[in-house]
C-alpha cells in the first residue's frame, strides 16, 4: 500500500474514531460517504479540520469538498498536489 495512502487512512481512523477498523479494511477507491463506513456531515467537518491541520489545505467551497472526499485515493492525490506543510 502506498505510504501516503496508508498514513491518511490511519489519520482518518484516528480522527473519526473508527474502532475495529484497520487501514486494510478501508478500500481506498470506495466512496467515503454513502458507503460502508457510514460517515456523515460531522465526519466531513472532521476531515476538513484534518486537511487544514495536518496538510495546511483550506477547503472553503462545499462543492470542492464533495469531490475531494470521493475516496481515500482521491483525497490522497489532492493532498499530494495541494499540501502546504
Amino acid at each position: 500500500m502506498n505510504e501516503a495512502i496508508l498514513e491518511l487512512k490511519r489519520q482518518i481512523i484516528e480522527v473519526l474514531n473508527l474502532e475495529d477498523i484497520s487501514p486494510e479494511d478501508i478500500d481506498e477507491n470506495a466512496p467515503l460517504f454513502g458507503g460502508g463506513l457510514g460517515l456523515d456531515s460531522i465526519d466531513a467537518l472532521e476531515l476538513i479540520v484534518l486537511m487544514e491541520k495536518n496538510y495546511g489545505i483550506k477547503l472553503q467551497d462545499p462543492a470542492e469538498g464533495k469531490a475531494v472526499f470521493k475516496s481515500v485515493a482521491v483525497m490522497a492525490n489532492y493532498i499530494e498536489k495541494n499540501r502546504t506543510k
Binding site: 480522527v15 460531522i42 467537518l45
Partner: peptide
C-alpha cells in the same frame, strides 16, 4: 493549542 481557530466538532458536541 489551535489559537481558537481549528476546532474539532465532535468534542464540542
Amino acid at each position: 493549542s489551535q489559537g481558537e481557530y481549528l476546532l474539532k466538532p465532535t468534542p464540542f458536541i
